[in-house]
Nucleic acid binder design. Structure first.
Lengths: 212, 212
DNA sequence: AGAAGAATTGACCGATTGGTCAAACTTATC
DNA sequence: GATAAGTTTGACCAATCGGTCAATTCTTCT
């Protein structure tokens, strides 16, 4: 009755192992931060010996960088959903929605970002000062154009983006707090969709001119 | 020319030492989280030998608990600024303002809170499930009353509070990101006041009924 | 089947971790 | 000024840290 040992190709196992280590690392870094994370704990969650982990990722820092770069990629994808061609209401709603969905789908990524910022952004600092700065500058231009056209209330675009980032990030980073306030249960899909709709509605009402 | 050694009373030095350790611990916990923080680093920032630290706080956890309880106290103080007797506009504006000021005055406290939530709130979990839950329930009642009276737009009060918490927390936790986007300089007082005003304005517009 | 390379792993390394301890020192009390 | 109590500190400890290494096992290719 003993089943034959399953044979896996080299490349398949390599991919699988790397992915397992990667996911384990994400969860550990999100929970404990870079300094608090240990390669032993990551190896344990990946269900491999620690020495094997160091075969795929030579150092803890290399692993952390890989994880972090992945988070940046996801961030850029969500950023692209802010569409200049659309009217403000559509563009802003789509962007908030995309950010909320991202926080829901990948809270761990958000937490890694948060903990990286908390420790002074030694790894993504460069990204913040270049790519992110460029992104927000170009979006500020769009928002200002809309304000001038009377399509949005006068305001400082940057602080508006901070509100969006803050709120969407919150749904990932403070999930633990929300769970505690929700009777120990995570937000259901229905609850989350309602929250998302309300966030969009409130922020839109907050920046759209009163209807005439 | 050698000045006499300054003599300090026992209780004075004790207070001073404890406070120095406490402040050093706050900054280290905020930066590295509980697990990433080391007593050696705390002692270094407090400018005392590590053994002396353990004389005042027997364990790292005891020190962390002391720091955390202090954060909770500050939180409760800000919470009390939400005044039931006032009209919604006043009450909400005052609460957001108080929260923003708190994030500005004590960003480290906010970061300790954030990193405690990130690791699953093992220490303040109890507080979340009791005091914080009670607080938000009672405030939800107030908000709902205002909604019924037509003073606020229909909404789920809880998600509104999440937006407030998210935004105010963001100004503390993501200060690093804001600095990077602000040409390497922290927000000036003027910038911060403008941001605060805009947050209040946007959120109020978001939940107040359109003027008739 | 056998050689060659890739992957796995237990044992191990020096450095750092949280914490202890006894000896020395300082302040308060009589 | 002597005794007691409170405080400070370097030396030290076992446990854990990130990382290494050589021996072994597995996969692929001829």
């Amino acid at each position: 009755m003993a089943s034959e040992p399953i044979r896996l190709s080299r490349s398949t196992t390599r991919e699988g192992r790397e992915k397992a280590i990667f996911e384990a690392a994400r969860s550990v870094f999100a929970e404990f931060g870079f300094k608090g994370a240990t390669t032993a704990e990551i190896a344990k969650r990946a269900e491999i010996p620690k020495a094997n982990l160091h075969y795929y990722f030579p150092t803890k820092e290399a692993l952390y960088r890989a994880v972090t770069e992945d988070v940046l990629t996801a961030w850029l994808e969500a950023a692209s959903s802010f569409d200049e061609s659309a009217d403000p209401q559509e563009a802003i709603a789509a962007y908030i929605g995309a950010k909320m969905d991202m926080a829901r789908a990948d809270p761990i990524g958000s937490r890694i970002w948060a903990s990286e910022i908390l420790r002074g952004a030694p790894v993504i600092g460069d990204f913040l000062e270049t790519t992110l700065l460029d992104w927000i500058k170009s979006r500020e231009t769009i928002i200002r154009r809309w304000i001038k056209a009377g399509k949005l209330v006068p305001m400082e675009p940057r602080y508006f983006f901070y509100m969006i980032w803050a709120t969407t990030q919150h749904y990932a980073d403070f999930e633990g707090q929300m769970v505690a306030l929700n009777g120990g249960k995570p937000l259901s899909n229905a609850q989350f969709e309602k929250a998302k709709a309300q966030v969009i509605e409130t922020l839109l009402r907050g920046v759209l001119p009163a209807e005439t």
